[in-house]
Design a binder for these strands. Structure first.
Lengths: 202, 202
DNA sequence: AAAGTTGTTGACCGACTGGTCAATTATACT
DNA sequence: AGTATAATTGACCAGTCGGTCAACAACTTT
């Protein structure tokens, strides 16, 4: 029924993701998003009750994309060492692609947004905290696989180690964003992650 | 000469630091800073040519405070292991203090601001990158001391390792800000840092 | 063709944005 | 006392902010 469905909502979500990722949530206005998406503001508020709700939905989209990718990378059919290698390579590739597209190293979108809004918008803050927790669960399963294969010490606390790896990667990405330079990550992230995991050889 | 000097400028810097640290640069307005500092906007622009210049000066102040503290912690008269222990403890204490004062875990002020503004304001971005580089230099000297004492492998690249430690700490602080919870850092930061450094016993 | 539904538009809102400025006040030096 | 200098004020600015809304356009169903 009604008028033919359009891709307006999708365009708004994509544009907002790019803009907010490159700059920041508060630095990007609804007008700017609409202008770049070629959509009038009336349409924006037809699809989203507020700017914050757009951010919430944009995170859902990114989460789903991330899930598809990570379900493959951390598939139980893979060797856990390979999973971590693929994860690091995926992070690097994605960062390079975004750098080329948006003209700046952007880091982890969830971390950047979370850092900005954690103390400003409770709902967004909680959502990002959950997304980060979900990501660390991929690491946990791979760490358990490493233990069962005898590749790392079985005395380690898997939850703790997974959180450490996640914050390490996020921290490296944050520094890459600040330095606007991916060299350090390209040259060191993989070996640093394996050193942190504590796997002898890989 | 002239009218008696006041603490107006200092009040503005302190208020802005608190507000921007808790929320974010773009979320805090000049009006808000002035109101909370009990200063009229005209006075604000008497001392600072723009909002960005206030941020720049506020970073200088924080940098100087940090330097005094780190010159002590990483004094060459200390054992390097002790320096890292003190550094971790200082980070935790400071975060606890700020959490109580501002009502939220705030993470590293430079990293938070840098993450937000790296792609928005070049001058601020560069300044923060420099501050971060300065901080890692403290780690470098302590790492060299650890090597000369035979406490860690002398094959490691000191520059690389120092950057890893710094981004690790920054990443942990970022996650603490997002989760608004210091428990993980309190319980794990010290051991995680020493594990990353690769020192056998401490 | 009328009715119902969905998408789009542009004009509009009050509040607030970063920033300006001339006038005023308080002090120190001559 | 007079003057130079620095601090403070409050009114003011144009532009932008997030958000609203009634009208209209395009489509499907009855």
């Amino acid at each position: 029924m009604g008028r033919a469905p359009t891709n307006t909502k999708q365009k708004l979500l994509e544009t907002a993701t790019d803009l907010v990722w490159r700059e920041s949530y508060n630095a990007v206005s609804v007008d700017e998003i609409c202008k770049k998406a070629g959509v009038k503001k009336g349409s924006f508020y037809h699809y989203f009750p507020s700017k914050a709700h757009l951010a919430l939905e944009a995170m859902d989209v990114s989460m789903q994309e991330m899930k598809v990718c990570y379900d493959d990378i951390f598939s139980s059919t893979r060797e856990p060492v390979e999973s971590f290698k693929l994860m690091v390579q995926h992070v690097i590739d994605k960062q390079k692609e975004i750098e080329k597209e948006l003209g700046h190293v952007c880091g982890c979108p969830f971390a950047t947004l979370g850092s900005e809004l954690a103390a400003q918008d409770e709902e967004i803050g909680h959502k990002i905290a959950e997304i980060c927790a979900k990501k660390t669960r991929y690491y946990e399963s791979a760490l358990r696989a490493l233990i069962s294969k005898g590749l790392i010490d079985d005395n380690i606390n898997v939850d703790t180690k997974a959180k450490e790896i996640f914050s390490f990667v996020v921290g490296q990405l944050l520094m890459a964003r600040i330095d606007n330079d991916l060299d350090f990550i390209e040259n060191n992230l993989e070996s640093a992650v394996f050193n942190l995991i504590g796997v002898k050889e890989y």
